[in-house]
Design a protein around this nucleic acid. Structure first.
Lengths: 111, 111
DNA sequence: AATATACATTCCTATATGGGAATATGTAAA
DNA sequence: TTTACATATTCCCATATAGGAATGTATATT
């Protein structure tokens, strides 16, 4: 079997750094494709293809305005990623605490 | 160009659902490969290969104990994902607020 | 030393890219 | 109705899987 499709879920879709760049850019406000092309410095077909992937997994929404297509983020679709990573938050906080404790113990030694 | 390697970063590594399953399992405690094989109901070579990807991006750490290799999560490596998703938190909270407001307005109508 | 156990690695293959180039589609302007 | 503009789609190809099968390697047991 090959790798799962980029359109299979949000996890696969955001694995591509350019798509995260696009989402970051759209986080500020709704934008046209050509705005994105200019900002990202990518070829227009590439941008359109990335936008298609993002749309397929529900990470962006589109509406037409004249000749332009205006894209915006659908933040709700990012929530599952946030929630999955949150389940590990307790672990890394604990890890950070231990690092801090060690640093303090080392400091105590010096005295 | 093809898709970026699964070992290029944590985003690509966790795109694969089986690897997230493994991380979820390891979140509870350090485990041997055969423990993982049993729990995940996957073939041992598959598990070993997924573990290699996770290790390459720093998502897990290993130590040997006799014949066994004990793997554990390195939660710190998940933080970048958490932080990236957090930048959209404001947006979905705003979205949820609007949904709530609409529901209340609709309720008001009924009266 | 021989054998068993626990993992890792290699080889194979179907599949899904992402980018570049070219082209198609849809809408507005002249 | 041409023409221009904005975006989407198609074709091509090098590349990287993920899983299955087979094999290699390290450590412990007998």
């Amino acid at each position: 079997m090959a790798r799962a499709a980029t359109t299979s879920d949000a996890f696969n879709a955001v694995a591509e750094p350019r798509r995260r760049d696009i989402l970051n850019y759209l986080a500020m406000q709704e934008r046209s494709v050509s705005d994105i092309v200019d900002a990202m410095e990518m070829e227009q077909p590439s941008v359109s293809k990335h936008l298609k992937v993002l749309k397929d997994v529900g990470l962006v929404e589109v509406r037409r305005e004249g000749r332009q297509m205006l894209y915006k983020v659908n933040a709700m679709a990012i929530r599952p990623l946030h929630e999955w990573t949150s389940t590990f938050e307790r672990l890394w906080k604990h890890q950070l605490l231990r690092i801090k404790e060690r640093a303090e113990a080392k400091n105590e030694e010096k005295k």
